Simulated scan of single mutants.
Amino acid sequence: MTLFHDIFTPQVLEWMARFCFGYPFVMSWYWIVGSILYWFIRERHRSEYTSPPHLLETPLVSVLFPCFNEADQLHETMVVLMDFLATQIMKPLPSMMAQAITPEKY
């Protein structure tokens, strides 16, 4: 007999097959029951989200973007990024955007 047959006997192969089916089956039920219990215990009593909390001042934001070997496209990337920030996040800042994006800075 070979080493393979010595290690992987029919009993071991049967145990491995049961484990490969049983473990995902048991864990799926574990997650289903856990998520239902979490909803009943925690989420059910939470208030509905209506609007973000009022802040005393606007928080500072850092934006990091990769630009390795992108010197030719850096200005275009910054224009698009500042446009996105001005239109989607910081609504009332077109004058600041015009001051921040100038070709001379790059």
Rank of each mutant, 00 (worst) to 15 (best):
T2L: 04
L3A: 07
L3Q: 05
F4Y: 08
F4L: 08
D6W: 01
I7S: 02
I7G: 01
I7N: 00
F8A: 05
T9D: 06
T9H: 05
P10W: 02
L13C: 09
L13Q: 08
E14N: 02
E14F: 02
W15E: 08
W15F: 11
W15Q: 08
M16T: 12
R18Y: 12
F19P: 00
F19D: 01
C20D: 14
C20S: 15
F21S: 04
G22S: 04
G22W: 06
Y23T: 05
P24R: 03
F25M: 13
F25R: 07
V26C: 05
M27V: 10
M27S: 05
M27K: 06
M27N: 04
S28W: 01
W29A: 09
W29L: 13
Y30T: 08
W31V: 15
G34Q: 01
I36M: 15
I36C: 13
I36V: 15
I36L: 15
L37P: 02
L37N: 13
L37E: 10
L37Q: 13
Y38L: 08
Y38E: 11
W39A: 12
W39S: 10
W39K: 03
F40Y: 13
I41Y: 06
I41V: 15
E43K: 00
R44I: 03
R44Q: 06
R46A: 06
R46N: 03
E48V: 13
E48F: 04
Y49N: 04
T50D: 05
P52D: 04
P53I: 10
H54T: 10
H54M: 09
L55C: 11
L55I: 08
L56N: 12
L56F: 09
E57A: 14
T58S: 05
T58C: 08
P59S: 09
L60C: 09
L60S: 14
V61Q: 10
L64F: 15
L64H: 14
L64C: 14
F65A: 12
F65N: 09
P66I: 13
C67E: 05
C67V: 06
C67F: 07
F68K: 13
F68N: 10
N69S: 07
E70Y: 07
Q73M: 05
Q73D: 06
L74A: 10
H75D: 11
H75F: 15
H75L: 15
E76G: 11
T77E: 10
M78V: 12
M78Q: 12
V79W: 02
V79A: 06
V80W: 13
V80T: 15
V80E: 15
L81M: 14
D83Q: 09
D83Y: 07
F84T: 07
F84C: 03
F84Y: 10
L85P: 01
A86P: 00
A86K: 12
A86I: 01
A86Q: 15
K91L: 14
P92E: 03
L93E: 00
P94L: 01
P94K: 01
S95Q: 14
M97F: 02
Q99D: 11
A100S: 05
A100N: 02
A100H: 04
T102P: 00
T102A: 00
P103C: 04
P103S: 01
P103M: 03
E104H: 01
Y106M: 07
Y106V: 07
Y106H: 03
Y106E: 00
